[in-house]
Design a protein around this nucleic acid. Structure first.
Lengths: 222, 222
DNA sequence: ATTTGTATTTCACTTATTGAAACTCCATTT
DNA sequence: AAATGGAGTTTCAATAAGTGAAATACAAAT
């Protein structure tokens, strides 16, 4: 197995990431971000362009192409977890008025929000599908790494983001932890004892997302 | 300039497309789809895997990774056209009860639905964001290639999809055509004279999406 | 036990990728 | 106006990096 990895492809994907994150980049910026020489970056960006993954705007800047939108939408809709979790998200928002999220582990120490329901309070936590979140020091991270205490939920006050408290619980698929369900609250609005109450709701909803099957996990997430 | 394109990258992107379209594929299938030898496909898929663009399920199959979801969501949300068109889509659905779409040209003779509003009739056209549509023989295609007659809209009955009639009009950004706005109706439900009425509405809404500026197009779409 | 199909590894061949340098534009500065 | 600096682009020789056939390993089907 080893490090079988294709350099030019790795680099191209790095560039693609840089372009998507920045929204619009010049060749020089993209090259710097990805640590490549301008000529190499140009060549790779052209390849990305000819395949629709990247496009150029009037001014010559690079931005995400439609292929990215297309594949992303397809991939998201094939995540049945998202549809399974919709009821739970809605109920949590209804119950608490706070924003609720479904997240899964992504790569290198991060997770992603796969589904989002915004809260109803006018001051509320706001994020978006696709948002990348660190696993270290977050409630979602604790849950996804299996560090959920016996209470069934994790509360992290003022973790990565200041002034917000996150309450998360694991969505289990057979043996594995497939995802985390969480509610995020402006810290000023919540007392210790309240977080416990919400925690129990989150834990209950999370537990109910996947049918309790004694069968093999197997097809796991998705 | 010429064909400056990096083969391994092209191939990797082909594989990524194959994986995303099929939902879940074995190595052999993916390799066949992309016309690659198994060993090459394996190497490239591993690279895609290590960067989060592809992941493997329990059975060893390949499926779209979270990076795809993430970048896709980001890209879609940075398309300001989508939010600008929301009102128009809503009004068209309200007026006609039929499904309404915003589409833009993608690559090689195809377009993509960037935004969708489902109609309210129980028998209605249904599609999804990211859906790829041919430009040949479709109302959207005619509009995007600038073939809109002076009436301001295009009607295509039973074009690519049988039994449906599409009515489309161009969204202009300065000089360019940035997108197409369309309504898609089951053909049995619409008479000639009705399509003209809807056409005028579509054309009016499409024209109003972007502020009429005499300034340079420039930043165009997005 | 044999066959068939897929996944994976190895390896010699060489093709395809690479980056420095050169050149062109264009906007700013002197 | 000339000079400067920065971005985008092209060229090209060096070789690092990617390729696919074949070998091996595994598993399921006959």
């Amino acid at each position: 197995m080893a490090d079988t990895s294709t350099r030019s492809v790795e680099r191209a994907l790095l560039l693609l990431g840089a372009v998507c994150e920045r929204g619009t980049v010049s060749l020089a910026e993209a090259a710097r971000d990805a640590g490549l020489s301008a000529s190499t970056a140009l060549r790779l960006l052209r390849t990305l362009e000819s395949t629709g993954f990247v496009r150029r705007d009037g001014a010559g800047g690079y931005r995400a192409g439609l292929r990215v939108v297309q594949l992303g939408a397809q991939a998201l809709s094939s995540e049945s977890l998202v549809s399974l979790a919709e009821g739970a998200l809605d109920r949590l928002v209804g119950l608490t008025g706070e924003s609720a999220y479904l997240s899964v582990p992504s790569h290198d120490g991060h997770g992603v929000y796969l589904a989002v329901r915004e809260g109803t309070h006018s001051v509320r936590h706001a994020s978006w599908v696709g948002r990348s979140i660190p696993l270290e020091g977050t409630a979602v991270g604790a849950v996804l790494s299996g560090a959920t205490p016996s209470t069934g939920y994790v509360v992290v006050r003022d973790g990565v983001e200041a002034d917000v408290t996150a309450i998360a619980a694991p969505v289990r698929a057979g043996g594995r932890i497939a995802a985390a369900l969480s509610v995020v609250v402006p810290s000023y609005r919540i007392r210790e004892d309240e977080s416990a109450g919400i925690g129990m709701h989150v834990a209950r909803e999370a537990a109910a997302i996947l049918p309790v099957t004694s069968a093999t996990p197997e097809g796991e997430s998705a």
